[in-house]
Design a protein around this nucleic acid. Structure first.
Lengths: 110, 110
DNA sequence: AATATGTTTGGCAATATAACCAAAAAGCCA
DNA sequence: TGGCTTTTTGGTTATATTGCCAAACATATT
């Protein structure tokens, strides 16, 4: 067992897992532009409000977003501003994937 | 529906999801230090070989690692070297979580 | 050829996730 | 108070993930 690293790796995994859904990545991107209420996001996402609310709760639980209730609505915002820079490397993986895919297609004669 | 972003966000989510497991994060850390065969990793992780092999296959499928069969063994390595820098931001989230937790404890009177 | 070593695959049980609908909460406005 | 709007919670169903064991494969060794 890798006991010395396990606690920290589990904590990291939890954050990554919270982000690992297309709708939640969309929410993160959107919040990068400023706070949004659930209804704003629901409109853009086009799923049931309850679904969006649950995605937000996953992000909140992981510490990625903050919520602020004002009157009727709840406004969400990014808790850690760097979250988006975060993707340079993910993008490299995707580019590698794409390059390899292209190479395979060539190998088969396009 | 956020149709214009959906494809790219789904692709990103796939990579994040592949990384979002403590054992797989351990593997990534270990591979950062150099290529490893399945048996090396299995020894350190202390799970069944088949379990480790499946974790590796998840990472491979997502394009995070490469495999190279040499003789009897299969050596895995990181496909995209930056993968580890990647964690500065995750760490910020964790630190925020910890700070908040400490604050809450204080509020309750330790 | 037979055996040993290293890795992957298939199957199964337990648990977790995701989406929707319906209903409950919480706050506003008349 | 009663009704409206916004958000969360509970319940259900469908699907995915994780981990182990057993079995299959592949390569090396005797």
């Amino acid at each position: 067992m890798y006991n010395d690293r396990k606690a920290i790796l589990t904590a990291r995994a939890k954050v990554l897992k919270a982000m690992a859904h297309p709708t939640r990545l969309f929410i993160i991107e959107e919040l990068e532009r400023g706070e949004r209420c659930v209804c704003d996001l629901t409109g853009q996402i086009g799923a049931d409000v309850s679904t969006v609310s649950k995605h937000l709760s996953v992000l909140k639980q992981a510490g990625v977003v903050l919520d602020d209730k004002r009157g009727n609505q709840v406004f969400y915002s990014l808790r850690v501003p760097c979250i988006l820079n975060f993707f340079g490397c993910v993008e490299s993986v995707l580019e590698s994937n794409a390059r390899e895919h292209a190479t395979l297609l060539e190998a088969v004669g396009k």
